[in-house]
Design a protein around this nucleic acid. Sequence first.
DNA 1: ATATTTATTTTAAAGGTCTAATTAAATCAA
DNA 2: TTGATTTAATTAGACCTTTAAAATAAATAT
Lengths: 407, 407
Amino acid sequence: MAPPPKNTNGLASQRHAGRRQVLAVIRKAGQIARIDIADRITGSPATVTAITAELLDEGLIEEHSPKTPPSSSPRGRPRVALKIRGDAHILAGIKVASHAVSLCFLDFEGRGRGEFETRMPRSALSTSEMVAFLHETLTKACIANGLSLDSLSGVGLGVAGIVDAPRGLVYWSPTLTERNAPLRDHLAEILPMPVFIDNDANLVAKAEQLFGKGQGVRDFIVVTIEQGVGMGIVIDDRIYRGTRGCGAEFGHTKVQLDGALCRCGQRGCLEAYVADYALLREAGTLNLPDAPHGQLDALFQAAKGGNETARSIFHRASRMFALGLANIINIFDPKLIILSGERMQFDYFYAQEVLDAVKTSVLQIDAPLPDIRIHKWGDLMWAKGAAAYAMEGVSDISVQEIGKNVG
Amino acid sequence: MAPPPKNTNGLASQRHAGRRQVLAVIRKAGQIARIDIADRITGSPATVTAITAELLDEGLIEEHSPKTPPSSSPRGRPRVALKIRGDAHILAGIKVASHAVSLCFLDFEGRGRGEFETRMPRSALSTSEMVAFLHETLTKACIANGLSLDSLSGVGLGVAGIVDAPRGLVYWSPTLTERNAPLRDHLAEILPMPVFIDNDANLVAKAEQLFGKGQGVRDFIVVTIEQGVGMGIVIDDRIYRGTRGCGAEFGHTKVQLDGALCRCGQRGCLEAYVADYALLREAGTLNLPDAPHGQLDALFQAAKGGNETARSIFHRASRMFALGLANIINIFDPKLIILSGERMQFDYFYAQEVLDAVKTSVLQIDAPLPDIRIHKWGDLMWAKGAAAYAMEGVSDISVQEIGKNVG
DNA sequence: ATATTTATTTTAAAGGTCTAATTAAATCAA
DNA sequence: TTGATTTAATTAGACCTTTAAAATAAATAT
């Protein structure tokens, strides 16, 4: 007779998939009764009972009785709603920009638990300086918000540049003086919790997926404009990263042969027409007055005031932006494009003019254009995305732990 | 006591996944022993034995002893190789072009079992005319190759235009006079086997994935140039179709604001610079001599002979093509791009000049450019793709049948 | 109270996969 | 030739998961 086999459970252990799925359904629904979960995962109530029992046990979810959901008839045993237990985990999200670092805390339900912001000592740091600086910043942020470092279950980090997320490498970033920096692992060495790192545009996509306008949409695209132009691609509910794991370089897509000079050194990049520096570069000849909100705002005011040169700057940028968007639509045919950002660009770019230009540049069939929506987040958009990314990672870890605890 | 539960087997019936996986591994390997299969699917030998027994039973695979694979030591029980059983199914692939219909038969191993070609009566037909014409053509092709219509297990159909593959609808095609034609279902009504239909570029991608240079590559992109410019996207081993299920419209990607007029009615499309008609349009002013292989060949000869005008036509097309490719690379960062086709364009376009231009237009990091490979298929490339698509569909159906036979 | 209705949990059968043991089929060594 | 050795494939039995069906729970309606 064979001795009891080890609990390796081999292969594609259905349970993991089930647990993940149930957790995702609960997160998406906010609160939901077991029987409705069973419905959505095409599993039986019995299975849902088993899985939710584990998740309750682990403290990842909780029952939520107060208001019976107004569904169905008032007869019969009332359904008891389940929800994510916010206190299960607290995540930190950090966004590193060239001038400042912003940080936020999110609980497991996605609710804000604190914010923090600080200046960068210099616009670019070495890897070890960056690690020390982030450690210090995170510690300060915890203190400022009455949290202990140990109470955090995970940290998400977003940086501009080219990042290999699965390996935690930063191939290149404007905020780092070194290339190919193993930033994640260096951080993880001095922090007591897991660290996740990604390109900032991908993180915004993740935030849109979990908390924003991408909820429940399997395929969508997020475009951000600011210092540069970023893009995040979600296909089949997952962030698409190319071969090298770096984000899509929409900003360096060419919209003009031998066109405007880009800061990447090439010509004709979309970024060279629509990013901050591109607009300001053209505005340079205009001799603008000082404006309270900077030169870009001054340019905007001038355009609004009827200055033809200023208007033509925005006009060209709009048309190029529309062309870039149209190309994305022609290639992906997405259901939804989210223009996500905090800056003023969208005030010009998301004009009827742009939409019309997109429309005339997309190969028309009977179906309508994809939904193009703007989402103006606050300053914390990027940091929230980073925290969302950490939440996903911690969620996976928690779910995997369950299997081990049993064995 | 509960009566024996029905064999609904619900949820993600692991077995299906397993069977599919094993079949895919065998197909990819050509021939492979059970123990090696176990290795590649991270399953146990026991499971592989069980699954392969089913597949053998069903006649989808067969043992293949003759030459012991030279692997490992010569000691021990020799491994017996398994392979796909070619006779398990015969598939037809049909490619409809504006001037001709080409057709091929493939067996379940992917070996050619016959070919056929015929002219289209007119360049565009109504749906019912098309159905009748295809039925007639398929019947003739069977007779010409000593096959009976009943012996076919599936038919794949590729058409240019915009196709909703899952629903079998042709929204628009240059070969159909009607829009929104339910071509698949109409065909399936008069044919005794399942019918699959898709955009032709997607089918070429499928052919590359199953038989060509895309074997074993999870993510790659196929570009075709001919009448138009097509693109097929494979992500995560699956063909990516946008929201409306239509192929990526790479050809109508804009490479120039207010650029050359495209036959789609818009301006600046890539197609308007590199497709047949675009080259010929420019050549029109050149007063070329008649050439045995048509005007396009005459243009090519002129360019080769040093005619500056002819050369400049190709030069511009090359640069635009490079720009389009660079955009694809910037967006997808694919591991591999396959330039797939039968026509002469690649003789010019795949020049060092193009590669260099791509290189200078891609955002450089330390990693090298993606592999860009040309694959010149014969005339039957498109039809083979269609047959490959049918093979995949029939494969799925066969695998699903197994479960039912048991119950 | 009791019946009815609906949600959840329990129970037991069915079907998977896995480990370990066994059997099969070859070579190697005397 | 025979037995040891080696490697592949199959079989046996443990264990895990899911599911249908039965049982239980918790409410309203009568």
